[in-house]
C-alpha cells in the first residue's frame, strides 16, 4: 500500500465533509443547531455543477454554489430567528426542501460533464519527493478548506467578532444585555454555514465524483454534523475528525482492494465504529461541551 497515494486520496475524500463541518461548527458556536446540512450540500452540488457547465468555470461554480446555499440557509434563518420556530424540525425541513429542489433543478443536468478543476502546479513544493505528490499536488479547494479551518480558528480565538459570536452561543441573554445584536450575528453565522455546506456539496459534484446525480451527497451532510460533535466544537477537532473519517473510509476501501483477510462487513462499518471509539477516548478524558445556548430559541423580551 502506497502511503503517498493513500494520503492524497484521503485529502480529496475528506474535503467535502471538512468544508460542511467547519461551517456548521461556526453556526453551532453561535448557538444555532442547523440539521439541514445535507439539504444545503446537495443544493450547492447542483448549483455549482450547473454554473460550472454553463460558464465553463469551476471556480464560478463554487462561488455561486456558496451563494445559493447561503440563500437557502437564510430561509432557515428567517424561520428560526424571527419566527422562533424549532431549530431541529426546521433543519430537517430544510433537508427535505434541499433534496427536492436540487432534484428539480438538476433534472436537465444528468449525464452532462463539467469542466474539471485543475490541480495546482505549486513550484518547488510540488516537485519535492514524496510530500510533493502527497500534499502539494491538489486542487485549490483542498487548500482553501485547510485555510478556512485556520481562518475560523483564528477568528474565534483572536478577533473581537469571534469572541462576541462565542458569547452569543454561550448565553444569548447576557450577550443581548451587553448590547450585541444576537439575531443579526446568528443570521450571519447561518449564512456562513450555508455557504460552506454549498462549497462542500460543489466539491462532490465538481471534483470528487465529478458529475451531477440526484441525491449524490448520499448522507455526507449527516456525517458533517457528527464531525462537529466529534470535534467538541473546535476548529482543529473538525479537521482531525473529517480526516479521520475520510481516512478510515479510504483506508478500508484500499484494504479491500489490496485483498486483506479482515472481513468486509467489519471494514464497511469501520468508519462509524472508529469515530465512536475515538470520541469515547477523547470524551473519557474530559472534553469541551456544546455551546450552552445551542438549539435554544432567542427572544428579546425587553
Amino acid at each position: 500500500m502506497d502511503p503517498v497515494l493513500l494520503v492524497a486520496s484521503i485529502m480529496v475524500s475528506a474535503t467535502p465533509i471538512l468544508l460542511a463541518a467547519i461551517g456548521e461548527m461556526v453556526v453551532e458556536k453561535s448557538g444555532v443547531l442547523n440539521l439541514g446540512v445535507e439539504g444545503m450540500m446537495i443544493t450547492g452540488a447542483v448549483v455549482g455543477f450547473a454554473v460550472a457547465v454553463g460558464s465553463g468555470s469551476p471556480l464560478l461554480g463554487f462561488a455561486l454554489a456558496a451563494v445559493a446555499s447561503a440563500a437557502l440557509s437564510l430561509s432557515f434563518g428567517l424561520l428560526t430567528q424571527f419566527l422562533l420556530s424549532n431549530q431541529v424540525a426546521t433543519g430537517l425541513g430544510l433537508t427535505l426542501v434541499g433534496l427536492g429542489l436540487s432534484a428539480l433543478i438538476g433534472a436537465s443536468y444528468e449525464g452532462v460533464k463539467a469542466p474539471s478543476l485543475p490541480k495546482l502546479d505549486i513550484p518547488v513544493l510540488g516537485d519535492l519527493p514524496v510530500v510533493g505528490r502527497m500534499l502539494f499536488s491538489h486542487d485549490i479547494m483542498v487548500y482553501f478548506s485547510l485555510a478556512l479551518v485556520v481562518g475560523v480558528w483564528a477568528f474565534l480565538k483572536y478577533t473581537r467578532a469571534g469572541l462576541i459570536l462565542r458569547a452569543v452561543g454561550e448565553s444569548h441573554d447576557s450577550a443581548h444585555a451587553l448590547g450585541y445584536k444576537v439575531v443579526r450575528l446568528r443570521l450571519a453565522a447561518i449564512c456562513f454555514g450555508g455557504a460552506c455546506a454549498g462549497l462542500g456539496g460543489a466539491y462532490v459534484s465538481l471534483v470528487r465524483v465529478p458529475q451531477w446525480t440526484e441525491g449524490m451527497t448520499a448522507g455526507a451532510g449527516w456525517i458533517a454534523l457528527a464531525i462537529v460533535v466529534f470535534a467538541g466544537w473546535r476548529a482543529w477537532g473538525v479537521l482531525v475528525g473529517a480526516y479521520l473519517f475520510g481516512g478510515v473510509t479510504v483506508l478500508q476501501l484500499n484494504l479491500q482492494a489490496a485483498g486483506t483477510t479482515v472481513p468486509v462487513e467489519l471494514l464497511s462499518m469501520s468508519p462509524y465504529v472508529v469515530t465512536i471509539v475515538v470520541l469515547v477516548i477523547i470524551s473519557a478524558r474530559g472534553a469541551a461541551g456544546a455551546p450552552a445556548s445551542l438549539g435554544r430559541p432567542f427572544h428579546a423580551s425587553t
Binding site: A226, F230, T275, I276, L279, V280, S283, A284, G286
Partner: peptide
C-alpha cells in the same frame, strides 16, 4: 464517559 449521544 460523557460521550455525546448525537454522534453515537
Amino acid at each position: 464517559f460523557g460521550t455525546n449521544e448525537i454522534l453515537v
